[in-house]
Amino acid sequence: MPNEVLELLNQLIETLKRNSVEVYISKDAERDVERLKSEDSFICNALSIAADTGIVFFGGFESRKNSALAEHHIAIIRRDAVCKNVIEAYNLAISKSNVIFATSTASKTGDIEGKLIWGMHGPKKFTVVLEISEELYGGIA
């Protein structure tokens, strides 16, 4: 079982990095997130995340508003929120909150000459703090 879990977590981390997401692995997310936060950041707990695509689901209308307005969106993700795929992640999210929304990276555009620019209208940076147990911590690649 821990091997399967580690495989899933390592897949997730690889996916997040490919999506240009800043990733921190933590044994205590609440503590570690204090070091990342600033007056321009918004921190919220994720309802679920899909390991294959890195799509993160959040809940609540106020969170949707605040996360869209922030310069830096920080997501705390716990082990039990990690799902294999996006359908599984959606179903888990909707079982926890009526109002959901998803994010997979920072706001971006390629509308002028196809040049990739981060932070078009939403957050310029998206960070994931992935909280895992002591037991799994050592197995992260």
């Binding site: 999506n19 695509t53 890195g54 799509i55 996006v86 359908i87 959606y90 009526n98 109002v99 959901i100 929304f101 998803a102 994010t103 997979s104 990276t105 920072a106 706001s107 971006k108 390629g110 939403g122």
Partner: peptide, 23 residues
């Protein structure tokens, strides 16, 4: 959900930065 994923993937910008589920 499958449709919005398809739309982003076949445009070439996948995963999309945002999926909005409005109600």
């Amino acid at each position: 959900l499958k449709l919005v994923i398809l739309q982003a993937a076949f445009l070439g910008t996948f995963p999309p930065a945002y999926i909005n589920v409005n109600e």
